[in-house]
């Protein structure tokens, strides 16, 4: 079912590579924090911790990002959604699958970049343990959470002309609050406490911290609970907006 998606991803491999290069922001952060930490650890982050954190952030963002919001919103706006609606497969499932299909190609292009950084930066603090078994679960949940948020915003296109601007707003907050630029645990104490309950952290910071083994038992439980909670909220909202939206769908063009 996702072979067409893979084929499309292959057909657009150049565009994909460029996109991946534009998401190397965590690697820039890495260079910055790494040199700042030369004088001594910042908070509880030493140089090796920063390397592990930002390489993980880069790779996990690669695994959990998608373009559904732009794809779906433009399909709704242009009426191209009609084509998907005529197939006996749920259009949202279609988007999910084609997103999944792009993953191997994406990782194939992104993983070497991560490895190169690790080689050059040296001293990686990654200990084997239970957290490495749980990490994939957190990544999958983060991926689904990102998809749900994107579908919610895309569905607004059933009523609004330019819904994707709203996603830019989300993305802006995500960049700051998810731990993409700075680990949220380095935020001022009061702010960190709040930020770590928000969906942004569930969508990136939590799986990253889990992967590099910085979380203890209770923190793990809270993190997973928050991920599930936010996924339930945005998943339900996405399905509700989708159903309402179809009733308003105009199937324009042709």
């Amino acid at each position: 079912m996702w072979r067409l998606g893979i084929a499309e991803a292959m057909a657009y491999r150049a565009a994909l590579l460029i996109w991946i290069l534009t998401t190397t922001f965590p690697l820039v952060s890495l260079a910055l924090w790494h040199s700042l930490a030369a004088a001594g650890p910042i908070g509880d982050y030493g140089r090796a911790d920063f390397i592990a954190y930002f390489v993980a952030a880069f790779l996990i963002r690669q695994m959990t990002a998608s373009w559904v919001v732009w794809d779906l919103a433009s399909q709704i706006g242009s009426g191209d959604l009609s084509v998907l609606l005529m197939r006996p497969v749920h259009p949202l499932l279609h988007h999910l699958m084609s997103n999944l299909a792009a993953l191997p190609v994406r990782l194939l292009l992104a993983a070497p970049l991560g490895v190169i950084v690790l080689i050059f930066a040296g001293e990686l603090a990654l200990e084997p343990g239970l957290h490495l078994l749980l990490a994939p679960v957190a990544v999958v949940l983060a991926w689904l959470l990102n998809l749900s948020v994107q579908i919610c915003v895309a569905c607004l296109a059933f009523w609004l002309t330019s819904s994707t601007y709203l996603f830019e707003l989300w993305l802006g907050l995500y960049m700051v609050l998810s731990g993409y630029a700075v680990p949220t645990s380095l935020f001022p104490a009061g702010l960190a406490a709040i930020v770590r309950y928000l969906p942004f952290h569930a969508a990136l910071g939590f799986p990253v911290e889990l992967t590099i083994g910085r979380l203890s038992g209770p923190e793990l439980a809270t993190g997973f609970a928050l991920q599930l909670l936010w996924l339930a909220v945005f998943g339900a909202l996405a399905l509700w907006l989708w159903r309402r939206g179809l009733r308003a769908y105009g199937a324009v063009g042709a």
Partner: peptide, 24 residues
């Protein structure tokens, strides 16, 4: 629809045929 296509723009049509085989 004369003004909408289900065929994937950058792939040969056989890929869409094969895709439809699976989907349907």
């Amino acid at each position: 629809m004369g003004q909408k296509r289900q065929l994937s723009w950058d792939l040969p049509a056989v890929d869409t045929f094969e895709f439809n085989r699976v989907v349907f």
